[in-house]
Each structure stands twice: as C-alpha cells, then as structure tokens.
Write a protein that binds this DNA or RNA. Structure first.
Lengths: 233, 233
DNA sequence: GCAAAAGTGTTGACCTTACACCCATGA
DNA sequence: TCATGGGTGTAAGGTCAACACTTTTGC
C-alpha cells in the first residue's frame, strides 16, 4: 500500500461558564476542559479530549463517546463541527487528521472529572498540546459569533435562570459586558425565552424578585437571518 | 490491527455563475461541476470532484490538486472547508471519511473539461452519487449566507464588471432578485468595491454607460459583523 | 425628442444602543 | 423610608427595501 497509516480522530473544545477557584471571588469565566498529558510527546502540556474514530461510528458519535469515556462528561447540551486540522506534521509519528468540535455544558452541571482533567480559563490557557490552542481559539470565535444570531446560549445556561444570570453567561462567553436591558429585549423579540412563572428570591439586601426564564428551544436555531440582501417580500 | 481500512478524501462543490445551454437564451444560473461515474457503484450518477488525501498534503492542498488533476480546473478563486461527511456507510466498500469544500470560479473563465465532466444547474441537479447532493445543498447554503455579510462574491465575479453584471451574479447565486440600487449602496458603504475609472460601452439600444468596478480585496473578509450584542463603545 | 440603461434621493419601517425612569422587596 | 436590584419607556442613530426621479447615452 502506497499510503502510510493515517488515523482519523475527533477533538472537542468543551466550554462551560463557571467560577474558577484560581480567581477567588471573581466573576464566572468561560472555561474549557483539558487533560494533562502524562507521556511524551509533549508531556505535561494540556490537551483537548478526543481520540480515534471507530469503524462503526460517525465523528459526532465518536466525539460524544470520547467525552463520556475519557472525561466522564455525559451531558453535553450542544455539540457542533468546526473545521478539520490536517497538516501532515501536526503531531509527531503516525498521521492524525482531526475533526474539531465545539461542545457546551450548562453552567449548573459539575461533572466528576478524572484526576488529570480540569477546567481552565479560556482567557489564560496553560501550555497546550500540538495545535489544540488554535482549536480552542476557533471554538471560542464560533461561540461568540453564534451568540449574536442564534439561540446557542441555551447550551451554556442552566434549565431556568434570571436575566442577571444569563447576562453573566453572555459576558463571560463574549469577553465584554452586555446591557441587561437590551439583552432581554433582543431575546424577547426573537422569542427565544419563555417565562416559567416563578420568581427568584431577592438577595440578602432586598431588591425586586427576578422572574425566571427558560429557553424555548433546546436545539440550535438561527434567530436573526442575514442583515442585508434579504429575499424580496 | 482492530480497525478496518479507512480513507480520508476531499470533495469539492465548485460553483460558477454561467449561461447553461440547456436553458437557451435564459439568464445565467448557478452551476456546479460534476463528473459522471463510468463504473459501479452508482454507475451513471453524477459525482463531485475529489479523492484520496495524500500523505504529504493537508486537505485543502488535496482538494486543489484533485481539481487540477481530475477536471483541469486550476484557477479556483476561493476555496473553503464545509463539514465532514463521516457516516460509516456513506459509500459501499472501504470506509471513506470526506472533508467537503466550497469552491468558486469567476464567471468569465471557461476551463477546458474532460469529456465526462460538465456544469449542471444547481436548481435542477441530475441524479447525484452517494451523499453528494446533500453536500451541494450545504455548499449553496453557505454561499448564500456569506454573500450577505462577507465579500465572497469576489470569487464569482469577473476581474472587472458593471453593477448590472454583479447583480446578475447575486441573483443567480441567491436564487432571487436583488435591487441594483441597494446592492450598490450596501457594497459601497462596506468598501468592498473600487471603481476602475473605465466605463462599459452601452448596449445597441443606447443607455448611459456603466462605470466598471473591481473587488477591493481578493480574499475573504467579513464586512458586516454581528447585528446584535456588539461590543460596547 | 425618445427609449433605454445607469445611477441618486427620499421615504418609511425596523432594529439597535444608551440612559432615564418606575417597580418590588428586605432591612 | 431607603437602598438595592429588576424591569420598562423613550430618544437618537443606523441600516434596510422600495420606488420615484435624474443623468447619459444611441437612434
């Protein structure tokens, strides 16, 4: 056979908005799930969960399986393909062509993780393995873009939440603050939120109780079609 | 080895806006490059150009090479990754994982094609091989979306053109008519067009001569950032 | 002058941010 | 009643599609 052995692998950048203990008493941040390599090559660097695609599964099934098996993350609320990393020399040894994924986990779930695995602030990544740092950056860019024109935040938000909590999630994921007023108006007009009827108890210092919302849909939906050159209507 | 033999291939949906002789004297249409399979499986159906990724090339290089070798198309003005098609049973026999691409060719070039290869209206595709029809639909959707918020039309337009010609290209690619007035205004404000200084001669029946334009950039650029939830400032 | 094609101005609708203002609660 | 946080109203600015209007040409 004239071709050398080539492996196809899946790699997932799984994001969650969470309070990282490194920044004590700080605000929640966008975090990504990484495990630390115990062996060469690149021993000690931090890698994304993933691995070889099996014969009987497609790449999305593979990515879900790797997350369940290797880092015990079963409740991924959203998973979508990014691009393929295929530089012949992207990893040493046997060639590996990697299909990248963006995964999201709700802010409230706290999966039990293996000892070599932990959450890391996307804003301050540790040394990453191979091209995994580029992959994380691409995943973050995709997330930020889709927050603007889809309901993708359902993947990061808890089942029910207040507008303030949702605002914190947007702030962490986008990297800048958003106006709570306008966030509510935008999401309301697009009908992505539904009030549950309940209200959250006010904090210790009082304040008006916040109404609680949930996302109307629990799968990705484009809520703001192209700005320009719309079909005539 | 516990894994069966798996091939990674690239597949490209190459689009061009062109006058198809099937619809005589009609307007130009969006066309895709297909070749007819001479052998089983699926003999007689129409397939996208592509093939096995070599050991020393990444998938984009592979896609360009396949286009040059198999259908003699060397001047692809734009090429970008779509998604991966990885269903274990997407083709019979040896497993093939396919990286899909969207390619664009300017309206004026007319590459010499092998005898088994020809352009087909995207609106009326012949029977397609395997999952290639889905791939073409995905490519078209990506093109239509990006026409709205990027300068991707540079890939379909000739080097210089009038606004009327450009309008025809948008109409063909989007599938609906666009207002020439507004097209000009949108593209002007985003500074994607530059006047060449020349004008086109009027048609046989007279008319004001049209000024000629070219695209300012010849690579993809996002010209209309997210509508909502912009950074403050 | 007239038809035809190119290009400009204007209007009304919609969406956005920013900010002032009102509402509900605990202390 | 006062501070605190939740929620609403409104004004200013930008972009859009639609269409009337002006400009420039060939006949």
């Amino acid at each position: 056979m004239p071709y050398r052995s080539t492996v196809h692998e899946s790699l997932a950048a799984v994001f969650q908005v969470r309070q990282l203990r490194t920044t004590s008493a700080g605000r929640p941040e966008l975090a990504v799930l990484l495990w630390q390599r115990a062996l060469d090559p690149e021993r000690g660097t931090w890698a994304l969960p993933g691995g070889r695609v099996c014969d009987d599964e497609d790449i999305e099934t593979s990515a879900r399986r790797q997350l369940a098996e290797k880092v015990d993350v079963c409740e991924v609320s959203h998973l979508e393909q990014l691009s393929v990393f295929s530089d012949p020399d992207r990893v040493p040894g046997e060639r590996r062509i990697a299909s990248a994924f963006l995964g999201l986990v709700p802010a409230t779930t706290d999966p039990r993780l293996p000892t070599d695995t932990s959450w890391h602030s996307v804003a301050a990544l540790p040394p990453t393995s191979f091209d995994h740092g580029v992959l994380v950056a691409e995943a973050r860019a995709r997330l930020a873009a889709k927050l603007s024109y889809t309901n993708i935040a359902f993947g990061l938000a808890p089942p029910v939440f207040t507008m303030s909590e949702l605002r914190e999630i947007y702030r962490a994921a986008l990297g800048y603050d958003v106006d709570s007023t306008n966030l509510q108006r935008v999401l309301n007009r697009r009908k992505v939120l539904s009030p549950t009827g309940d209200t959250a108890p006010p904090g210790p210092t009082g304040g008006r109780p916040a109404t609680m919302y949930r996302f109307t849909d629990s799968s990705l939906r484009v809520t703001d079609e192209f700005a320009a050159l719309r079909p005539p209507g």
